[in-house]
Design a protein around this nucleic acid. Sequence first.
RNA 1: GAUCCCGUAGCUCAAUCGGAUAGAGCAUCUGCCUUCUAAGCAGACGGUUGCAGGUUCGAGUCCUGCCGGGGUCGCCA
Length: 600
Amino acid sequence: MTDLRRALSEAVGAAFASADLPAELGRVTASDRPDLADFQCNGALAAAKSARRDPREIGAQVVAQLRENPVFKSVELAGLGFINLRVANGVLSERVREISADERAGGQPAETARRVMIDYGGPNVAKPMHVGHLRSSIIGESLKRIFRFRGDNVLGDAHFGDWGFQMGLLIIAASDENPHWRAVAEELWRTPDGPKPQEEDRFIALLLEGLDLDTLDRLYPSAAAKAKQDEEFRDRARKATAELQAGKPGYLRLWRHFVAVSRKALQREFEALGIEFDLWKGESDADPLIPEMIETLKAKALLVQDQGAQIVRVAREDDKRELPPLLVVSSEGSAMYGTTDLATILDRRRTFDPQLCLYVVDQRQGDHFEQVFRAAYLAGYATDGSLEHLGFGTMNGPDGKPFKTREGGVLKLHDLIESAREKARQRLHEAGLGVELSEVAFEDTAHKVAMAAIKFADLQNFRGASYIFDLDRFTSFEGKTGPYLLYQAVRIKSLLRKAASEGAQPGLAVVEEPAERELALVLDGFDQAVSDAYAKRAPNFIAEHAYRLAQTFSKFYAACPVMGADTPAQRASRLAMAQTALRQLELSLGLLGLEAPERM
RNA sequence: GAUCCCGUAGCUCAAUCGGAUAGAGCAUCUGCCUUCUAAGCAGACGGUUGCAGGUUCGAGUCCUGCCGGGGUCGCCA
C-alpha cells in the first residue's frame, strides 16, 4: 500500500520515461495551489534545464500521455511548465478505504529497520528538572515514537548525569554542611564502638537523614558558585571527584544516596510528562570501561599528554577554526564529561550496537559532541556518520532571553507543569466543559490539556530554533494549539459515540463533496509527514500534519452533516471518514506524545 | 578576535531537491449556533522575506559582503 503521491509519481515518471527522459523527473508533490490541483509535478522545468528544451513542450508531451490514465480527473499544463493533477473521486475513495483498513492509518514503515539509540532527557543528580530539560525530553520522546513507528528498533536512554565534577562538589558541600554527612563521607563512624557490619546500613541511613532532594537542590548551586571563586574549594572538589571515581568507600556511600534520592524524584516527574525511558543508564555505568578505553586510545597513539591532562586531538586540517582537543583525563586524574560520553559510545556498541545514535541535547553543546564523535570515529567505536547531535534552541521568556522566573531564578519543571494545569482547569471551567465529569476524570482531562499545550507549543517549532514560552498563549485554547487538537479529537469521539448509540455503523467511504476531497487528501498526506519527520529528525512535520488534519476535519464537520446525512449510505461513508480521521489524529498525537481524553 | 546558528505580516511561528500568487495562528474587522461539542466554521485586512550585490529561465532557500541578535572557543555539564 502506498500513498497517492508515490503512486502518481510512478505514473508520471513512466510518462517521462516514454519521452526518453529520466523517470525521477516524475516526482509528484502536494499542490501549492489547491485551487488549481490536488498534486503537481515540476519535472518538466527541471528537464528543460538539462535537455535544453522548452519546458512547455516537454510538459505537453507528458500531459498528453497522462490524460489517457483514468486515475486522473484532470491533467493541465500551467504556467512555465507545471503539470497540475487532479485525481478522480473514485481513486480518493479507494485510498480512504485503504487508510481506514490500515492499523497504521497509512503511515508506512521505513524500507529497512535499524537499531537506533536515542539519548535524551539528560536529568542530573541533585538538580530538579527545570525548563531546560523540557525540550530535550519532549523532542526526544517524540523522535523515539516516530522512529519506532517507522519500524526501527529503538532504545531511549535517559543518560543520567551522575558522575562528573558535580559529584565531587556535592560531596564536599555536604561534608562541610553537616558533620553527620561528613562522617559518612570520611567513614568516621568506623570507630571501635561504632555499629557492627550488619547494622551499618541502618546507622548510615540515620546519619543521612535530612539529606533530601531539597537539600541537594540548595547545596549544589551554592557549591558551584563557590567553586568558581574559591580555588581551594574547587581543588578539594576536584580531588573528591577523582577519589570517588577511584572508589573511595565513604564517598561511594554518599554518592549512592544522592543518586537514589534524585532518581526517585526525577522518575516521578518524567511520568507526569508521559515520558518513558527504556534505559536509565548513568554516566557512572560507563566508568568501568574507561581504563580499557584509555588503553585503546594509547595503543592507537591518539592519547597525548598536554598541560598535565591527557587529551585526544580531533582538529582537522580543513577545519575553519581550531576545534579544541577532547579532554579524556583531567590533570587531577578524573573523568570528564567527554570521557564518559566516549565510554558510553563504547558501552552502547557492546550492548546494543546501534546503527544510529541520536543525541537530543542543547545546541550549545555542538562543539562538545563534534569532539566526542570525532574521537569515537578515530577510536573505531562507531562507524562514520552514525552519531548525530540533534541540537535544539533555547526556550526563552517574553523578553526573548532564556527563560527565568520573575525572581530571576530557573523555573522548576514541576512548577511549570502545575501552573499549566491550573490554567487548563480555569479554561475548562470558563468554557463550561467537563462539568459532568467526576473530579478524578476532570483532573485527568486538565492534565492532558496542560501537557498538550506545552508539548505542542514546543513541537510545532523546528527543533533548531529557539522559541518564546508564553503560557497564556499556549493555553489560550484557540487556534494552533495542543488543546485545539484534543478538542477536535474529542468532538469526533463524541460523534462516534452518538452514532453508536443510534445504531449507525461506519461503512464504505465514498468521496464526493469538496470538504470530503480535502479530508481525503490530508489523510493521504500522513505518510509524507511521517517520512519527513523521520528523515529530518524533526517532529514539527507531524505537528503540522496533526493541525492540518484537525482543521480539515473541522471544516468537513461544518460542511458535511454526518448523522443528518441525506442517505444511510452517505451517513455510513461519513462515519467511516470521521473514524479514520480520528485514528490518524490520535496516531499523530501519539507520535508527539499527546493524549486526547474521552470527553471534555 | 575567530567560528557557528538565527533575522519572514503588528506579535508568535511555517515554507518539500531552487519553482506558480511566501503560508498558519494570535490580534483587528464582517458573517454563521431551534441541526452531530462555537475551544468551532466562512471571509476580510495584513509582506521590498534585515540590507546590498551575485549565480539561475526562476532565490525566503545557493554564493559574497555588510547590519542586527544569540551561542561557542581545554580541565563544569
